[in-house]
Structure formats: C-alpha cells, structure tokens
C-alpha cells in the first residue's frame, strides 16, 4: 500500500466528479487545471515508491506536463471564456442533480468493469483503471450533455486526461518523443478550439453547440421542391 498514489488518484476522481455538478465555468476550468496538476505529479509519486530514483527525463516530462496542462491550457481557456463572455452553463441538456447521479453510476460501472482486468496486468495501483475509465466516461458525457462549446472543450480535456492517466498508471513507456507529441497535440487542439469558440461567439452571438445545426442532408426550405 503506497498511500500517496491512491490519494492522487482519488483526488483525480473527485475532480472529474465535481465537473458534472458545477455550473460556473471558471470553477470547471480550475478543476481541469487541478486534474492536469495531479496527472503531472503521478509519475513522480510512482518513481518515488518504486525506488527507481528520479531520472532527469521523468522530472522534466512531469514538469512540462504540469506547466502545459495545469498552467497554459487553463489560461487559454480562461481567455476564450472572457472573450466569448460566458460565465455559467445555465441550461444544460441534463440537470445537475441528474448529471451527478449519472456520474456516480458511471463511476460504479467503471469499477465493476475494471475488476475483469485484475490479474491480467499489473498497474501501479488497482485504482488506476477504474479512475481512468470514469474520467473518460465523464468527459464523453460532458461533451454530449452540455450546451456551451467551451464546456465541450472541458469535457474533451477530461476525456484526454483519463486516457493519459491510463497510460501513466499502467507505466507504459513509449519514449519522450511520443509523450511530448501527445502533449503538443492537445495544446494545439485547445488553442485552435479556443479561437473557434471566440469566432463562433462573434458569428452567432452565442456558443450553444446544440444550436449549430444548419448543416444537414435534407434542409427544411428544400422540402417544397
């Protein structure tokens, strides 16, 4: 039992869960930043308890991770939040009570689902797989059940953090090039999405993604033909 890792993982789970029941955008952005921070700390905790010692590679990667996911991405998100002038997600497609209940169900399902992996692999902690899968599911859920384009970006980041947690917790080592590449991709993605959110808010006077539905196969005005 190495408590620190479990604490980190549980905090991660808590932050994903809180995302489903908070309506203030700034609060959500802070939660995602906290996830990034925890994700960066995890490899350091693992290295400490495996008694491998801190190699420069691990420390550098963790630092870059923390800076990008805990610092730069939230900054970009906050900026596009201020530019698009949204503070709250007022009318989600699914209310906050129902959302948090559903999140609990998803967490339970992930724990049940992850029991099947016991013995097949040896992660750093048995909590890794369930926490990662819950985050992935909650992220997908946020993308589907929230209106604002910005909340969808947050949902995507939660989804991505869950996948990254899975990779880190299973101690998959695939070289610094790939780690950095994945990080760079996520960074550019949020950057582009931030610009897109701003453009959408300027063009449509709103950023409700569910009202982006003008492109379709059989448009209404064409039925007369």
């Amino acid at each position: 039992m190495n408590g620190l890792i479990e604490i980190l993982l549980l905090l991660f789970l808590l932050s994903s869960f809180l995302l489903t029941c908070s309506s203030r955008m700034l609060h959500c952005i802070r939660l995602v930043a906290a996830q990034g921070l925890l994700l960066g700390l995890l490899p350091l905790a693992v290295a400490r308890f495996e008694h491998k010692g801190f190699s420069t590679g691990i420390v550098l990667l963790a630092l870059i991770n923390i800076v990008v996911k805990g610092g730069i991405l939230p900054y970009l998100l906050r900026r596009s939040m201020q530019k698009a002038d949204v503070r709250r997600e007022l009318e989600p497609l699914l209310g906050y009570g129902a959302s948090s209940l559903l999140a609990l169900v998803m967490i339970g399902a992930s724990f049940w689902f992850s029991r099947q992996f016991d013995g097949a692999i040896n992660p750093v902690s048995r909590l890794v797989a369930p926490v990662a899968f819950s985050s992935i599911l909650i992220g997908l859920f946020l993308i589907i059940a929230r209106r604002k384009a910005l909340t969808q970006v947050l949902g995507f980041l939660t989804f991505e953090n869950g996948i990254a947690l899975f990779g880190a917790g299973m101690m998959l080592e695939h070289g610094a090039i790939i780690e950095l590449g994945i990080l760079l991709d996520v960074f550019v993605l949020v950057f582009v999405m931030g610009i897109a959110v701003f453009q959408i808010s300027r063009e449509f006077q709103h950023i409700d993604a569910d009202r982006l539905n003008s492109l379709r196969d059989y448009p209404k005005e064409n039925t007369a033909e």
């Binding site: 384009a149 990779g167 999405m193 897109a196 063009e203």
Partner: peptide, 30 residues
Amino acid sequence: AAALEAMWKYLLICSVGIGLALLGTFFVAL
C-alpha cells in the same frame, strides 16, 4: 457561419475519435 460550424464538428468529433484510438494504442502496448 456554416464553415465555422463544420470546423467545430470536425475538430470535436475527430478529436474524440482519435482519443479512442490512443486508448486502443495503449491497449496494444498492454
């Protein structure tokens, strides 16, 4: 406006899809 909508859908749907592919890649590593 329509082009923006198309770009948003492209970014979001493809990124989520490709995120799943990353999970699949991790599974291969396992």
